Simulated assay, not measured.
Amino acid sequence: MYPASFENLILELHKLPGVGMKSAERMAFAILGWDDDQKEQMIDAFKKASNLKHCKVCGNLTEEDECEICSDPERNKNQICVVQSEKDLYTIESMNEYKGVYHVLHGTINIQKGILPDQLNIDALEDRINDDTEEVILALDPTQDGETTALYLSRLLSDRVLVTRLASGIPFGGKLDYADAKTLSKAFAGRTKE
């Protein structure tokens, strides 16, 4: 049996997604092997991460009131790409092709889990749409929950603005963050009207 403080470190690491107890144990031993500077850098990274919040406009991660994308005057504010998570936003950004802005829902509709539209960042999306908005691109995972959310948003918004979806290239049941830039680029180029 390990000392209580080491057991606690293992249990905390085990809380990370995809980290089993054995992996958490290996990570804990690796951390014990770090010198003081490495440990301080990790502690500092955790402290700085506590300053992160959601952009008041789109819901992206930021340290300010608005994220860098929303405050960038070069971005096309009349084209809004709706994503499920911040991770999906950064996956799309990695293409270096999309020049519009984003809106992060922070999840998808899932009736079985009790996640309903009013629990997502949908009201803020509706508030952003005005007469100048040209297009809302639904870039949601092609899963059952993603499809349900896309259908809901399409019905909610299509009388006010052009609503499109990413084209094929991302398989049903797949995840955006697993798609390579080329596949995403093709999906964006072939998006369809909803």
Rank of each mutant, 00 (worst) to 15 (best):
I10H: 12
T192E: 15
A30F: 12
V163Y: 02
E135A: 06
K87S: 10
C55N: 07
L52Q: 03
E68K: 13
N76E: 01
M1H: 11
D145A: 14
S5G: 07
E97S: 09
E25I: 05
Q144D: 06
G20L: 15
I43R: 11
A189D: 13
I10M: 14
A30T: 11
L156H: 01
R155V: 04
A124M: 07
K99E: 06
V57T: 10
D35F: 03
D118G: 04
G100V: 02
G107N: 03
I109A: 08
I69R: 01
K182Q: 14
I129E: 00
A150I: 00
Y178H: 15
L16W: 07
R160T: 07
N76K: 10
V101T: 12
L116E: 15
E93W: 04
S158Q: 13
I31G: 05
A24Q: 10
E63W: 01
V136Y: 01
K175T: 13
E7L: 14
A179D: 06
I170T: 09
A179Q: 08
A189S: 14
A139N: 03
R75T: 09
Y152T: 00
H106E: 03
T148G: 09
Q79S: 12
L32Y: 01
N8P: 01
S23P: 14
A24W: 13
C70A: 02
A49N: 12
R165V: 10
K113P: 05
D44R: 14
E63Q: 02
Y178T: 13
D177N: 12
N96V: 01
F29R: 09
L140M: 05
E25W: 03
D123S: 02
K15Q: 15
E12D: 13
I43D: 04
H106D: 00
K47I: 08
F172I: 15
A45I: 12
F29Y: 15
I109K: 03
D159Q: 11
I80A: 05
F29E: 06
L89N: 07
S5L: 11
R26C: 10
T164E: 10
E135G: 01
I69D: 09
Y102Q: 06
K77V: 05
L184N: 08
L9S: 09
Q119V: 03
A124T: 02
E126L: 04
A189W: 01
T149I: 02
N51M: 04
E68S: 14
Q38P: 10
S23C: 14
